Amino acid sequence: MAARIDHLVTSGTFSLDGGTWEVDNNVWIVGDDSEALVIDAAHDADAIAAAVGDRRLVAIVCTHAHNDHIDAAPALAARTGAPVLLHPDDLPLWKRTHPDREPDGELADGRVLTVAGTELTVLHTPGHAPGAVCLYAPSLATVFTGDTLFQGGPGATGRSFSHFPTIIDSIRERLLSLPPETVVRTGHGDSTTVGAEAPHLQEWIDRGH
């Protein structure tokens, strides 16, 4: 059986630089009937574990370490035995939320994760956060972008650890080079496609200056 993509929305808060905001997060689960991989364990370990069901969880992948994307990761790992994977450049952010619990493994650009016979390639896409990554699954014609690229533009770069020119470079070089029909599954909000977003790159650059 080919891998499928399950989608869960969880709600909680995002906190950084002294502010806290209510947010809804997309949690993506890639797998088949026997095993699965979770992208961004946000807010609610119980709900995510219920969506995984009795499947073996092979990994909990963090697209970046803002608290709203990782707050449920340790609890989900404790329940399932799955390793939490994070790019090491985001460790300073991770430690703000989980000072006493390190991730279990490192994500690196080009690393390939496999679940249910489906390969997901790690693309290091800094800008929204130093260790932000996207996961490209060509066989599913999908890229999971976390908070790097949304429908309508790049992720926010107005807070600590973020940088607008860097996120633009990441999007231009790593994401807009993917096939235009590639579905962009985001960390918040609706999905889009590479082809729908690519024509607007110059607008984003002009708007960001």
Rank of each mutant, 00 (worst) to 15 (best):
1 M>T: 12
2 A>Q: 15
6 D>T: 11
6 D>L: 14
8 L>R: 08
9 V>G: 06
11 S>G: 10
29 I>M: 09
32 D>N: 13
33 D>E: 15
36 A>F: 09
40 D>T: 11
43 H>I: 08
50 A>G: 14
50 A>V: 05
51 A>L: 06
52 V>C: 03
54 D>I: 04
56 R>Q: 11
59 A>H: 10
62 C>T: 00
63 T>M: 06
64 H>P: 03
68 D>R: 13
72 A>N: 06
76 L>D: 01
78 A>W: 00
78 A>V: 03
81 G>Y: 02
84 V>Y: 04
96 R>G: 07
101 R>A: 04
110 G>R: 05
115 V>I: 07
119 E>M: 07
132 A>H: 15
136 Y>F: 15
136 Y>K: 12
137 A>Y: 02
138 P>C: 11
144 F>Y: 12
144 F>H: 01
145 T>P: 00
145 T>F: 09
152 G>D: 12
156 A>P: 05
156 A>V: 00
161 F>K: 07
161 F>R: 04
164 F>E: 14
168 I>L: 13
169 D>P: 11
171 I>S: 08
172 R>M: 04
176 L>D: 07
176 L>F: 15
177 S>M: 13
190 D>L: 15
190 D>P: 15
192 T>I: 06
195 G>H: 09
195 G>A: 04
199 P>S: 02
200 H>D: 13
201 L>P: 13
206 D>W: 00
208 G>L: 00
209 H>L: 14
